[in-house]
Amino acid sequence: MKNWIGPVIAGAVLALVTHAVVVIAAPGFIMDRAMSVLKKRGSPLHDFGLSPRMTAETQTVVRPSPDLAYSLCRFDLDQAEQGLRVRMAAYDNYSSISFFDSNTNNFLTLRGEGQAREAILLPPGAARTAGPPGGLPEAVVAPNATGVILIRRLAPTQQAYDTVAEIAPGDLCQPL
């Protein structure tokens, strides 16, 4: 019996460590795969692309809403070392812009409320500063270098989607 104490303790420790590693690594692993799919499907780096209306043929991530128009910008702050300037153009109906890092953390969300919204996205480790004079946006520091920025706009009809398509060119995701 005494001879089993060591192996049992070792097995229990390995079980705990494996459990923690799998749970903590899963979001990053899944996000990495999703970003690869987005890249393969032509989602641009440092630029917003308006997705077509969500259908069985056009969906790229799980559980999209067919009532929303999605614009997505992939970012890699290793390739934009000064950061990114991000803007969501004004839209009369519901809209929001959300920032996700490569571990799926939603580290910033701004709601449109009929107004354009802007933010400066800084690389990890950058000093967080107030925005430049003139009412420009406050800067936010990304938790890690890669991720996606997602704009959602309510567009349950083709007519509403067409309206989004007209204003979406005013969105901005641009290296500083």
Binding site: S96, S98, F100, N106, R111
Partner: peptide, 15 residues
């Protein structure tokens, strides 16, 4: 982990 698998890019509850 569950949301990453079943609801990736979900919004926070205030939204």
């Amino acid at each position: 982990a569950r949301i990453a698998r079943h609801g990736l890019l979900a919004l926070a509850n205030s939204e």
